[in-house]
Design a binder for these strands. Structure first.
Length: 1025
RNA sequence: GCUCGAGUGGUGGAAUUGGUAGACACGUUGGACUUAAAAUCCAAUGUCCAUUAGGACGUACGGGUUCAAGUCCCGUCUCGAGUACCA
């Protein structure tokens, strides 16, 4: 019987699907375990071997947990809203819903491209997903609940006293009773204070405007990151190095009215929550940095109308945030961000021109330029002075672009002796640098070491250390009403509007400019049909093109825009039809709660997830995915879960208890080296020939700088002549270069040799390619890069499954190296794993008459055979050693080493000629999480009628590993020289006696007497001297 | 700049608490089988010296602690990831 993996794998995949083997139950006596992968965006390019890495790891773990007696939930779905489908729609007119469906289910799109489909590709790898619980974020039945959560956020505020979100109703009744002075709520900075009487006297619209300042999702005019090329705003985490993460387009700051999420209300809890979850320290640190908590004080400085007068009550106040209130007496100037409106207010007439010019020049510089150019110090004096809260001395107010409008209040109190940026600024503009530190030299640079700080020249703070000085400074500031202790967070509220089509529509319509929520019982509000997926001519989002996109408050339906009259006609009753919101939600909306949706199966149209399901499954026990979502998805979902928890909709306040971040699988790109002629007289003229040199020749030429070789000049000239290039141009050729061109990795064999014929056929431009070979072959250059279609280094899992089988793919991906580490894919090594599976197959296929492990061509064809005879001690030892190691490895997510362990076990059992059921049956259970198909096949051949996933993980029995002797390494001065087999129950003295009497010992000592003999029984002997 | 992580044969990697460095696999070399190839099997394979026996060196580099260091400590270099004028 040969190992026909293709047949076996197809058979068992069908079996699992038909029997629903991996469908989880919400009602079980077993303990629950929830294993989740970050769900994929189904792109048209399909899967490459890098994508399934995390899925294979989670699948091994999920299958292992089932064998360990857990009721395992291991679902999968699609994050199916997103940009690529929309871009594709803009190019081809194909509806994003169609693109998405084809990308998931396979088929042919309207451009004639054959798409394999994510689902088909995933199925071939043999995952134990419970597909009966699939979710797609673009499915109206799903996004109905995304809209519902949005509505709940709108109807909530954050109470700092109870430290949780509450229904907006409790806030409204508090306002009606006592105004807003006694509530302690998270709200906008510009929220006015009012009494109960004032509140009750406000019009409905005025009340709504005030409530917007409290709601957890709110509409506000905010400065956003606008990407003109994409025609949309981007969240901070969608911008990388000042350009859009997707496409690398320029991003500019722009003011727009947008939906925002008041995630800042949760800043502290998002930091605190990290303590209780089992995530890698690095990703926790990333989140802490992103939230950016700093503790210090807010200090108010009154602006003096001019330097001679003292500050008056009506003069403006500049609030600053500082982490170093202890250095308050070191303040010698203040700096404001140039963007602040206040700058215009305080600038003196004499300085007006200089200030405006500076504002003008900084606004022209892009964020990126400003970031790149941190060395240049620039700024302008406003002419205005503030008053020091304690000394009452005048402090000059400057503006400078090193102060960012977006952090804190956009203003700093500059303490040049304690902050290097302030120091550099002061040096540049000749501002005094008072020293407030005892015994510290600040003539060269600022001194910022808090640990050794002792304050001086600071009135009541003199002689105090950092901590005490901070406390006292805040106390004194509070006493005179000039400041207060404050904690500042870098985390900004998240912009939640996108000017796109392919996203969740908001369940919002506008009456008199005020947003109104559509009652949740009328959800979902489905995306309207539009003709083109582009913004409108007057710059509205794509939904502005929809004809049927107005809300009829009488029928509670979406109706034609023709019925919509936003301006009421005098004397007529309004018809109750209002315009709907034109923005859609961002990509992270649907992914912030999908893990709850999987828990529910039966009542999905009634609830987002039923209480029973939520209570039963709790949170995700193990989450596997990439670490690139550290500040996006992983922060937003924590925020939403905490909100849902506060409002009593779910019972957990962290979504992912344990997380493992798998490393990226890199591609091994292949390069061919193409000869190009260069004309020195005319540097623009480079002629690319169709001649390619092999890697060794390329290396030689590069190393020896051999760029005048007549052979290559002649070849270049000949190529140009053949291409009909003018003789005059040809005569100008004086040199040549080689350009590296990516060759498709499928054209290269394991020894880096190029399949020349296939290469010529690969792309028409290489039809007539000529090759300069070495030893009769063309060798390519290799380089490890990110796996990507454009680099032609993509390896497709379907091909691997076809050629070696899914079990081989699964084991090889695990064998590649530690899960969390980035590692290059190299198909060459896959044969090692494949050979192992073939050898394993053989262990179960040997007739008694033809023993295995012998010579070629015989035993591969033997019939299935397993004996019921008792097994040998050695085989039991091999088995139990394997059980122990594999169990430990899976628990530690060290999957690569357990593949090695299987190989060792296979080699040992083959050497032992083991045919015993007692060994081979449990071995299959151990292997089944990694190579489920072959395990199922052999399991059924052993006579089982149930799936191997119903079996129990073998119990490790240490008694089989007990040894009576130990092969002691005998070292001299720490260097191992020989080994000696000794009984394990020997005492130190007995060991020493035998070792010292040994002739090799005598030989190595060569007559010397050892100073010391170290003996660790069961471990080592070390002779010193 | 700061934070975190890493650096081990030709290659991917192993060594979980300081105790035989290089497991397992790839690749390479040699051999068996075969008309031949593939497949399969056997053997060798860290580097250097030595015919052998054996010896020296060896976990980025330089120090240190220890009977013993890839592992612990100090310093340096390189690479990767995150983050950045955060007051």
């Amino acid at each position: 019987m040969k190992y026909h993996f293709n047949d076996i794998e197809a058979k068992w995949q069908k079996y699992w699907a038909e029997k629903g083997t991996f469908h989880a139950s919400n009602d079980s006596d077993k303990p629950k375990y929830y294993v989740l992968d970050m769900f994929p965006y189904p792109s048209g390019a399909g899967l490459h071997v890098g994508h399934p890495l995390g899925y294979i790891a989670s699948d091994v773990y999920a299958r292992y947990k089932r064998l360990k007696g857990f009721n395992v939930l291991h679902p999968q779905g699609y994050d199916s809203f997103g940009l690529p489908a929309e871009q594709y729609a803009i190019q081809t007119g194909q509806h994003p819903a169609t693109t998405t469906k084809v990308n998931i289910e396979g088929g042919v799109d309207n451009q004639g491209n054959v798409i394999a489909g994510y689902r088909n590709q995933l199925d071939k790898i043999g995952f134990s997903f419970d597909w009966s619980r699939e979710v797609r974020t673009s499915d109206p039945n799903y996004y109905k609940w995304t809209q519902w959560i949005f509505t709940e956020l709108f109807n909530s505020w954050y109470n700092k006293d109870t430290d949780k979100a509450e229904s907006i109703d409790t806030l409204v009744s508090a306002f009606a009773k006592a105004g807003n002075t006694s509530t302690n709520a998270v709200c906008d900075d510009d929220t006015p204070t009012f009494t109960a009487d004032e509140w009750n006297g406000y019009s409905d619209k005025e009340q709504q405007e005030i409530l917007l300042k409290y709601r957890l999702t709110y509409l506000a005019e905010t400065e956003v990151n606008w990407c003109p090329a994409l025609g949309t705003v981007l969240a901070n985490d969608e911008i990388v190095n000042g350009v859009s993460e997707r496409g690398g387009h320029t991003v500019v700051r722009k003011k727009m009215t947008q939906w925002s999420m008041r995630i800042s209300a949760y800043a502290e809890r998002l930091i605190q929550g990290l303590e209780g979850i089992d995530w890698s320290e690095s990703i926790k640190e990333t989140q802490r940095n992103w939230i950016g908590k700093s503790v210090g004080a807010s200090v108010s400085f009154k602006v003096k109308p001019d330097v001679t007068s003292s500050a008056v009550e009506t003069s403006p106040v500049i609030d600053v945030f500082t982490t170093r209130p202890d250095t308050i007496f070191g303040v010698s100037f203040m700096t404001l961000a140039p963007e602040l409106d206040l700058v215009h207010e305080i600038t003196t007439p004499e300085q007006k021109e200089a200030v405006e010019a500076y504002i003008e020049s900084t606004s022209k510089r892009s964020e990126r330029e400003r970031m790149a150019d941190v060395k240049t110090i620039s700024g302008v004096f406003t002419g205005a002075y503030a008053e020091h809260p304690f000394t009452k001395e005048p402090i000059p107010i400057w503006i400078g672009d090193y102060v960012l409008a977006g952090y804190g209040t956009g203003a700093v109190m500059a303490v040049p002796c304690g902050d290097q940026r302030d120091y550099d600024f002061a040096k540049k503009f000749d501002i005094p640098i008072p020293n407030v530190f005892e015994g510290v030299d600040i003539s060269e640079e600022a001194f910022s070491d808090k640990a050794t700080t002792v304050i001086a020249n600071s009135d009541f703070l003199n002689g105090l250390k950092y901590k005490k000085a901070v406390k006292l400074a805040i106390y004194e500031l509070e006493k005179i009403g000039a400041g207060t202790g404050k904690t500042n967070y870098r985390l900004r509220d998240a912009v939640f509007s996108r000017q796109r089509y392919w996203g969740e529509p908001f369940p919002v319509y506008y009456v008199d400019g005020m947003p109104q929520m559509i009652d949740t019982k009328h959800l979902p509000i489905e995306l309207p049909e539009i003709e083109k997926y582009l913004p409108t001519e007057d710059g509205e989002p794509p939904l502005g093109r929809a004809d049927v996109w107005s809300w009829d408050t009488k029928t509670n339906t979406v109706v034609s825009n023709d019925l919509c009259h936003p301006e009421p006609v005098e004397g007529q009753e309004h018809n109750g039809v209002y315009p709907l919101e034109l923005n859609t939600m961002p990509g992270w909306a649907g992914s912030s709660w999908y893990f709850f949706r999987y828990m529910e199966k039966a009542q999905r149209d009634r609830v987002f997830a039923s209480k029973e399901a939520l209570d039963y499954w709790g949170n995700v026990d193990l989450y596997i995915g990439g670490s690139e979502h550290g500040t996006g998805h992983l922060l937003y979902s924590r925020f939403w879960v905490k909100f849902l928890y506060d409002r009593g909709f779910v019972g957990v306040d962290e979504p992912f208890q344990k997380m493992i971040n798998q490393g990226m699988i890199l591609g091994t790109s292949a390069f061919v080296y193409r000869l190009s002629a260069v004309s020195i007289s005319n540097k623009d003229f480079i002629h690319a020939t169709n001649i390619f040199v092999t890697k060794s020749e390329f290396d030689r030429i590069t190393k020896e700088k051999d760029f005048n070789n007549k052979k290559y000049i002649d070849l270049s000239k000949k190529s140009m002549k053949d291409n009909g290039i003018d003789e005059k141009e040809i005569s100008k050729i004086v040199g040549y270069v080689f350009s590296n061109i990516h060759a498709d990795v499928s054209l290269i064999n394991a020894s880096d040799e190029l399949d020349i014929e296939a290469f010529k056929k690969w792309r028409p431009e290489f039809k007539d390619a000529e090759f300069i070979l070495e030893d009769g072959v063309y060798k390519v250059g290799r380089e490890v890069e990110k796996m990507s279609k454009s680099k032609y280094n993509v390896v497709n899992p379907d091909q691997i499954c076809e050629q070696y089988g899914a079990d081989t793919l699964r084991m090889y991906e695990m064998f590649l190296g530690p899960l969390e580490q980035a590692k290059p894919w190299n198909t060459a090594g896959i044969t090692g794993v494949h050979n192992f599976l073939k050898k394993l197959w053989k262990l179960y296929h040997s007739s008694p008459s033809a023993p295995k492990g012998g010579t070629a061509n015989v035993d591969g064809e033997n019939a299935f055979y397993v004996s019921d005879e008792p097994t040998s001690k050695e085989s039991l030892k091999t088995l139990h050693k394997t059980i122990k190691k594999v169990e430990e490895d899976i628990e530690n997510f060290s999957f690569n080493t357990s593949v090695s362990t299987f190989m060792i076990a296979g080699n040992e059992l083959a050497a032992q000629k083991c045919t015993s059921r007692e060994i081979l049956e449990p071995l299959l259970i151990l292997l089944s999480p990694y190579a489920p198909h072959i395990a199922e096949e052999l399991w059924s051949k052993l006579g089982h009628t149930e799936s191997i996933s119903e079996a129990s993980f073998p119990i490790f029995d240490a008694s089989h590993l007990v040894e009576s002797t130990k092969n002691y390494p005998i070292s001299f001065n720490g260097k191992m020289k020989f080994t000696l087999e000794l009984p394990l129950d020997y005492s130190k003295d007995q060991i020493e006696e035998v070792v010292m009497a040994h002739e090799k010992t005598k030989m190595y000592l060569d007559g010397r007497t050892p100073k010391k003999v170290i003996i660790v029984p069961g471990k080592i002997v070390n002779i010193v001297g």
